[in-house]
Structures are given as structure tokens and as C-alpha cells.
Design a protein around this nucleic acid. Structure first.
Lengths: 255, 255
DNA sequence: ACTTATCTTTTGTCTATGTATAAACTTATG
DNA sequence: CATAAGTTTATACATAGACAAAAGATAAGT
């Protein structure tokens, strides 16, 4: 690449960030080393300090820089890099893969919450929650299995909703935005019921996603999603704020 | 300083972001609705437009707002929320869980790259790469299994390195920062060898992580990490830029 | 009616500057 | 000598003002 440093168009802060990143990648600035302060960089790049600040913040968010007041900015020693997974509603995932989406509720009833789920939600065991199980299909083939507990007291206006008809996930997304979420991945062997619903063999390894959301009223819902065997969840490429690769709109790949 | 404006001290932009978020959560501003423009909000919150801009950008990054020039800012219809996973080096994970870390290389040799791995790296099949397999232990019990291919042409200074002794992951992290990374999760049944190395039963469901990194010279390494059964990878709580929960330093939980 | 040029609104980005704050450094003091 | 208090300094955060760019709205021309 011929002279990339200064020249090019595109936001100045990003250019600066890219150049600094390059210097780190190419070990011009090594791990733990202190880099010039904002004022100096501002002079070097012929920019305002605020612009340099923005660029460095970006890199700090990426985990590449450590910045502390007075101490200066230094290259992170063991960069704990962050990857982001985009969680969209299932229907979108399926349709993005060019398949026809459908959805079937397997069971739904009010039921006292078991201990483990209660603990996850921070609710006393035995509280009455809505418990439902459903299957999401793509082109008629099972795609995901959903086992969900819903706390009606945190989702006002939910009592009138019939989840036999409506997609719980979508209803919640549209009507009960959350304030905090926890998400965990794990793997589990398909039990007999899961195998049947996913039309696979018992014991097959399934990627499992556990998601719990809260709003200011308390826990809203916790859901355990088991994906069809072989399912892949991939993270968004490169960096958090990608300097836009051309036509690349990223979504979890479905395989 | 006398009266700190409104409720809490702490960065003004964050306060604004929180307030806007609250209004969305409590459905004061509903999905698809257009919210006041930056100038108006600046007046309402008695802040500069740049500050409001920062706050709204934050929420847009969270996926809660859609912003377009001239069209204004509106609440995202089906928020695709982003969760971030922090990828730290294995040793840190193990030690953070209070276990003693150890590491054993099972195999290492130069070997022609098979088709699938080559495709992942964007390299022609048959190119000679370093292939190694290793096990990471916590308190002597197998923790993770690593199957790695390293492209020496993208990691200068690597030829002299002896991975029988050194931890490949750490060497790479410290000496070959990457420019782009891809990460994917999936689940797989333990095969015979994996079961033996992880001291578990064949067929057990394992959480598998595939990671590939590039720098400006090309692909650096691709690695397939199989976690011990039951392993949980959890995302960082709440929002990307957390408005500092008190004493909560988050790290992937190990179970 | 349809296309095209122009206006206008709203966000994106940058500059220049100032205040606030945390941490490292210095110095005074018990 | 350790510790408490003050000083310095680099970053964090905020502000006001400016211009650019995108895109909706509108007017004009064919």
C-alpha cells in the first residue's frame, strides 16, 4: 500500500485510528509502550485534539489501547479483544437465509417457576410465570427450539396476549424493550424430546443460547434456545465500528 | 461547584443517553417514532449539540436508534441488539477461576493445509503451515482443546519460535496483533480423540469456537477450540459502554 | 406527468478552547 | 521515614461554532 497515512478521504478520526492501529500491528509501537499524548498526535496529524481523542477512544474501546488520566495512553499488553454478536429475531435470521419462516407453539401454560430458572431471574421459586415452548422452522424444517419463561409483572399489557398465535420473541422485542440482558452460550446433547422436535438424533450436539432480559420493573423473560445441529453463530467481522467494508452487511450465518 | 444539574453526577452524555433509553424502554417514544432532533434535545437537556450527538450515537451503536441525515432519528423497529464477548487468553481465564494453569502440546509439525482450513484462511490447498494441537489444563483437569494452523508468512519472526515450549496463543497475541478477526460458535460431539484428551465420553456435546485472524500480510492463524463439556461463554453485561456498575468486573464465567 | 434542479432540514464531522479529574510526582511535616 | 498535602500533567468531558453531506421537499422545465 503506497502512502496511506495522510491523504485519503473519509472521516479524519477514522484515518487517525487506522494509522495508529497500523503502528500497533506493525509493532512500531509495542505492547505496554506509551504512545505520544493527544496534543502531540494532534500536531502530527494536523487535527484538533478532540479528533485525536475520538480516534484513541475508539481504539481503547476495541481494547487495543489503555488510557488513564495522567498516566498517558499505552498499548494494551494482552489485548482482550471484544467480538460482538448480533442478536436479531429468529424470523429475520431465517428469512435472511432465504427460507420461509414458520412457527409453532408446542406448549404454553402458567406454571410455578423451578429453582434454577427462578435463580436466573432473581425471583422466588414457585412464583407463577408463563412457560412456553415453541419451535421455529425454516422452509418447514426445524430451525430452533425455544423454551421460555415470561414474567408478566414486568411486561405490562401482556396478560391479554395469546402466545399460541403470536410470536413471543417478536412481541417482547416490540413491546418490552429491555434495559439489561445476559447472554450465554453452551453446548448440550439433545435429549429425547429435543431430538424429536428438531428431527434429529438423541445425543446430537446442540448449540444452546441462554438469554435473560430485565427492564426497570424486574426480569422480563429468560429463554433457552437450542439450535439445529451444525448451526453456526458468527460474530460481526473486524472491529466494532467497522470502517465500512463495501457491500458487506453482516448477519449471523446459518448453515 | 453548586447544583449539579439534575439527578446524578457522571458524564453528561451518558446521562442523556440513559434518559433517552428510559423513554424508549417505557414506551414514551415508541418503535419507529421519530424523536426530537439534536438541536431540540440540546436545549431540553441544556447541553451542546455535540454532547447530544455523542449520546445518540451511543444508542445508535447499541442498535436502539436509527439515525439518518435529514430524515432524523427514530427508534429502531426491531432492535437487533448486540452483545459482546470478551476473548481473553486461556491462561487468564483459568487463573481468574482460581485454578492453576498448565499447558501441553500434543502434536506439532509442518503440514500441507487441507482444503477446508485453506478455504477459511484464503490460502491454496497444500500450502505448508504449522499445525499444532494442544490441551489447556486448569488444576490438572483438561479445560480446552486447541487445534491450530499457523501461517508463518504472516507472522515474521515466528520461525525461530518453539511452540513445544511456548504457548502459541500467547505468543501470537503478544507478537502478531491482528487487523481483522472472525469468530464463530458451534457445537460438536466429541470424537474419540477429543474425548480422550478432555477426559470425557465420546459423543459428549462440546462448545466449539473457531477463530481466524488476519493482519496486513494475510491470514495469521486459525484455531478451533473445543471447550470442556458444560462450559459456558457469557457476554459482557448490559450495554457496550456500561455506565459503570459498581464493583463488577466481567469475565467469561467458567463452570 | 415526469424528470431535474434547488432549497432546506438534520445529522456527521471537525476545530478551537476551556474546565474537570485522576494519577503521578513533589514537597512538607509529624 | 512514612505519610499527608499540594502541584503538575495527560486525559476526560463539555461547549460553541462552522461546514459538509445526505436526503426529503419543493419548484421549475420539458
Amino acid at each position: 500500500m503506497p502512502a496511506r497515512p495522510a491523504g485519503s478521504t473519509s472521516p479524519k478520526a477514522l484515518n487517525i485510528a487506522n494509522e495508529v492501529r497500523r503502528r500497533i500491528i506493525e509493532l512500531e509501537w509495542r505492547q505496554g509502550e506509551r504512545i505520544p499524548d493527544e496534543a502531540d498526535l494532534a500536531i502530527e496529524f494536523d487535527a484538533a485534539r478532540a479528533t485525536v481523542n475520538k480516534a484513541l477512544q475508539l481504539l481503547a474501546d476495541e481494547g487495543l489501547l489503555d488510557r488513564r488520566r495522567r498516566a498517558g495512553t499505552r498499548v494494551t499488553v494482552n489485548p482482550t479483544r471484544k467480538a460482538t454478536v448480533s442478536i436479531s429475531i429468529v424470523r429475520e435470521q431465517v428469512e435472511q437465509a432465504g427460507m420461509a419462516y414458520s412457527y409453532r407453539v408446542v406448549a404454553q401454560r402458567r406454571s410455578p417457576v423451578p429453582a434454577d430458572i427462578g435463580a436466573r431471574l432473581g425471583l422466588p421459586e414457585g412464583k407463577l410465570l408463563v412457560h412456553m415452548r415453541a419451535v421455529h422452522y425454516g422452509d418447514g424444517r426445524p430451525f430452533q427450539l425455544e423454551d421460555r419463561w415470561i414474567n408478566t409483572s414486568s411486561a405490562p399489557g401482556l396478560d391479554g396476549v395469546d402466545f399460541w398465535q403470536l410470536n413471543a420473541n417478536e412481541w417482547l422485542v416490540q413491546n418490552a424493550p429491555y434495559l439489561r440482558a445476559e447472554l450465554a452460550f453452551t453446548a448440550a446433547n439433545a435429549d429425547k424430546r429435543e431430538a424429536r422436535l428438531l428431527q434429529t438424533r438423541q445425543g446430537e450436539a446442540l448449540l444452546v443460547m441462554q438469554r435473560t432480559t430485565w427492564n426497570d420493573l424486574g426480569p422480563i423473560t429468560t429463554v433457552r434456545v437450542a439450535c439445529q445441529p451444525g448451526h453456526l453463530i458468527s460474530t460481526d467481522g473486524g472491529y466494532a465500528k467497522s470502517n465500512w467494508s463495501p457491500g458487506e452487511t453482516r448477519t449471523p450465518r446459518i448453515s
